[in-house]
Simulated assay, not measured.
Amino acid sequence: MLQNASIVVVDDEPDILSMVSDYLGRDGYHVSRCANGAELDRTLDKTSPDLVVLDVNLPDEDGISIARRLQATRRVPIVMLTALNDTIDRVVGLEVGADDYITKPFDLRELSARVRAVLRRAPGADGVPAAPREPRPEQKRPRNVACFGEAFLDFDARRLIDRNGVDLPITATEFAMLSTFAEHPNKVLTRDRLLGDAPEHGSGCCDRAIDIRVTRIRKRIEVNPTRPQVIRTVRSVGYVYVPPN
């Protein structure tokens, strides 16, 4: 169950670290606290968390670098904490694979809602098995799949795989977006619809977040991402998924 999920909170400000950890703990999560990337690495050597709440502005190694490293090795869902005016950090955070972000100062209830939404979309939620991390080229294509150009979305295992059965990197939010596309083929979906059950950020930020994720997905599924044929842009409206005939 989501309430029993394991969360690591990483922030170098003791007051924020304590406040966030205590609040999420009262929500029923098992929370570990880290002040920097080195402490996070030591924690990850001992446990495999279900989600990381990660501050961007950390000493030694910044949160963007840590997020990039985690997504390359663990693909753990990440909610990033960013400063109010650091739009670049929010954009880069999404580009390197963070699932969501929240700006400081923030309402703890909003942070909790974002954490809950990301966990609901994550592999392993509601008893669904998490995707294996090791490629398995010999695996036959699963039956419960949707074709997305050069890749297949496996609904049962919550994986995105190429035509050889090798896992492609995908965040929980990206999986949710592809699932929404698969449920509505050849229908134009607005950015608000693709946002799904994620908490609102404000329309401008939401649009940018969706566009970044679509760009990331296109790089994995399109033959030519600069001229997408699978997920097409409908100007001023949103996107449409065009399945194979």
Rank of each mutant, 00 (worst) to 15 (best):
residue 5 A to D: 00
residue 6 S to A: 03
residue 6 S to W: 00
residue 8 V to A: 02
residue 11 D to M: 09
residue 15 D to I: 15
residue 18 S to M: 12
residue 28 G to E: 13
residue 30 H to R: 07
residue 31 V to Q: 00
residue 39 E to W: 01
residue 43 T to K: 02
residue 44 L to G: 01
residue 55 D to G: 08
residue 56 V to L: 09
residue 59 P to G: 05
residue 60 D to N: 14
residue 61 E to M: 15
residue 63 G to N: 11
residue 78 I to H: 03
residue 81 L to E: 00
residue 81 L to M: 06
residue 84 L to K: 09
residue 84 L to R: 13
residue 90 R to Q: 07
residue 102 I to H: 07
residue 104 K to P: 08
residue 113 A to S: 15
residue 119 L to R: 11
residue 121 R to T: 10
residue 123 P to H: 04
residue 123 P to A: 06
residue 127 G to D: 09
residue 128 V to A: 11
residue 132 P to M: 00
residue 138 E to Q: 07
residue 138 E to P: 00
residue 145 V to L: 13
residue 147 C to S: 11
residue 154 D to T: 06
residue 163 R to N: 14
residue 166 V to A: 08
residue 172 A to K: 03
residue 174 E to P: 06
residue 174 E to G: 12
residue 175 F to I: 09
residue 178 L to T: 06
residue 192 D to M: 09
residue 199 P to K: 10
residue 199 P to F: 09
residue 201 H to L: 14
residue 201 H to S: 01
residue 203 S to L: 13
residue 203 S to I: 15
residue 207 D to L: 06
residue 209 A to H: 10
residue 209 A to L: 07
residue 219 K to F: 01
residue 222 E to V: 05
residue 222 E to P: 04
residue 227 R to E: 08
residue 230 V to S: 04
residue 230 V to Q: 01
residue 232 R to M: 09
residue 235 R to C: 06
residue 240 V to N: 04
residue 242 V to C: 14
residue 244 P to H: 15
